[in-house]
């Protein structure tokens, strides 16, 4: 798809040469795959005995239960992080300097924190201070604290990306600050934020696997258990990876669909925010998504 950018339509000689190179490249890749399969077979990892447990109903239910736990943590954390992130974003844009400084400090502090440290902290430190809740909540808390900071930056960037004339026009029509913000600014800004938000949600979903370290029985933990029980860590973890990939690809697909539709309808570009790995990728995808819409 991107190829025509760097190479013109090929002439007959170049086409022949490209076919040759393609065949060589395909052969090289096939060779690599073959070597990997040979390695798997030689070490006995392709034996039916190692894969068979993954076809047992009980094991499948066990793993899918893990996936469900992952999705439960992720969805609750997503909703809470979005709500708190929105409040934080308003705080950073507030006219009151105290509110601005406090929310700004929160965002800058937790954005630079590794999430794993927060998970360990909530799972190991809070119980020491008399907080006694299910592990589920420690994972949710860590995810919400971290992601609300990142999402706040996304919301803020989205709101700031809107032309100032929108707010000014709203004020000129007699709207109050909050009326202008909620009726005029936020609905327009939201459209530009969609791809960045969804890609952060994909990151959040992947990050639920950190619940592993404080023994929350999510997908990764259960895949590890399965691997230890049946002596097939490679196969069990492979199955877990496939489940994660399937869910994340589905989420990304939805994001792309939304983004293309938004673009076609409103012609609004996406925003980008520094500091979060997946967001750079969103920027990439939105650049490509543009010419794809028909017409």
């Amino acid at each position: 798809m991107t190829a025509p950018m760097l190479a013109d339509a090929l002439g007959p000689r170049a086409r022949r040469r490209m076919r040759l190179i393609s065949v060589v490249a395909a052969a090289a890749i096939a060779g690599l795959v073959l070597a990997a399969v040979r390695r798997l077979a030689d070490t006995g990892q392709l034996d039916a005995a190692r894969w068979e447990p993954l076809t047992q109903g009980a094991v499948i239910r066990f793993l899918l239960g893990g996936l469900l736990a992952t999705l439960r943590v992720a969805s609750l954390a997503m909703v809470l992080a979005m709500a708190i992130g929105m409040v934080l974003a308003f705080g950073r844009l507030a006219r009151n300097p105290v509110v601005r400084v406090v929310t700004g400090a929160y965002v800058e502090f937790f954005r630079g924190f590794p999430l794993l440290l927060l998970v360990l902290f909530s799972g190991l430190a809070l119980p020491k201070y008399g907080v006694d809740v299910a592990v589920f909540w420690y994972v949710v808390l860590a995810l919400v604290v971290y992601n609300s900071a990142i999402l706040a930056e996304i919301f803020r960037a989205g709101i700031l990306s809107l032309d100032k004339g929108q707010t000014e026009a709203a004020h000129a029509l007699g709207f109050s600050y909050w009326q202008a913000m909620l009726i005029v600014v936020v609905p327009q800004a939201a459209r530009r934020m969609v791809p960045a938000i969804v890609s952060q949600l994909v990151t959040l979903l992947k990050d639920t696997s950190l619940g592993f370290v404080i023994a929350y029985p999510e997908l990764l933990r259960r895949a590890r258990n399965t691997g230890e029980f049946f002596q097939n860590p490679l196969q069990s973890l492979f199955a877990a990876a496939l489940l994660y990939i399937a869910v994340n690809l589905a989420l990304s697909r939805v994001a792309r669909r939304l983004e293309i539709r938004q673009r076609r309808r409103y012609g609004a570009g996406a925003i980008t925010v520094a500091g979060a790995e997946d967001l750079t990728v969103t920027a990439v995808q939105s650049e490509e998504a543009a010419p794809e819409g028909p017409g």
Binding site: S209, F212, L220, L237, Y244
Partner: peptide, 22 residues
């Protein structure tokens, strides 16, 4: 698409505890 959509923790555990079997 495959590596990016797998959680880093899973990759880490898969490589360290799974690939040793190979």
């Amino acid at each position: 698409e495959t590596v990016r959509n797998t959680p880093l923790t899973v990759l880490m555990v898969l490589f360290f505890f799974g690939f040793t079997k190979l």
